[in-house]
Amino acid sequence: MTQRARNWLLLTPATAWFLVMLVLPVSVVLIFSFGERGDGGGYVPAFTLEQYANLPARWAAFKNTMVLAPLGTVAAMLIAYPLAYFLAVRTSQKWKTMLLVLVIVPFWTSILIRSYAWIFILGGRGIPALLEMIGIEGVRLIYTPFAVTIGIIYGYLPLMVFPIFVSLDRLDKRLLEASSDLGARPWATFLQVTLPLSIPGVATGCLLVFILLMGEFLIPALLGGGKVFFVGNALVDLFLQSRNWAYGSAVAVTLIVVMLVSVTIYMRLIARLNTQREDVSLM
């Protein structure tokens, strides 16, 4: 058997699987988004833009997603950066791996259980009850945008720390020494050497978290209590409650398009930021 034939054979199961479970389903969503709703739900073949024309009916879900996803991403980044810096620059080699594993591991455990923990903490008998004991009454935390943001930060912090850590860890520590030898204060070194060199890590972390947040369902469902809902919650409602497949498909396609457009704009901005930095260093 030639090597070529062998490679084809080895690729066959994976290719077949991707075709049936990824390419076909995604194409079906695209096709259904131009169709019509059946009488008892489901889908009737058609070619109409009616579903897309109806998108404003779900404007609130898109608005919440487009406000809270970037907000949560930035908040997670601000909290993650100092920790990543501490792990990469200030931690001895011996502890580094273990401390890093401790940050990453929660990300791979059930987000359902971890969000549930916050229902407990933010709910009536959690923090509000503690605040009442010291005389602050009537604080309501659960089912607010605040609760959803906390849940987002909690859920996605590990994913943010990791790429920032990697970029800071790879950074040549001699650059920092050179900077301080040349008389730069620690803050100046940080702002002019460390921070610019860690931008790729920050950019990757923000991108990963933002993409996952765009499709979030559980955190708003559990901590937003139906008041703070994302596009994901609208999709669950459309497919599992009202069984409006055509309209739901249009919402899903729009979500992907919004995601692709934001990611493209974001990549352009990052690329511009990087070239500007090179210009500066050339002078």
Partner: peptide, 14 residues
């Protein structure tokens, strides 16, 4: 990259 929720609905209807 595609959100899990989209994989879910796509697989369901397909």
């Amino acid at each position: 990259m595609i959100p899990g929720i989209v994989i879910g609905i796509a697989t369901l209807i397909a």
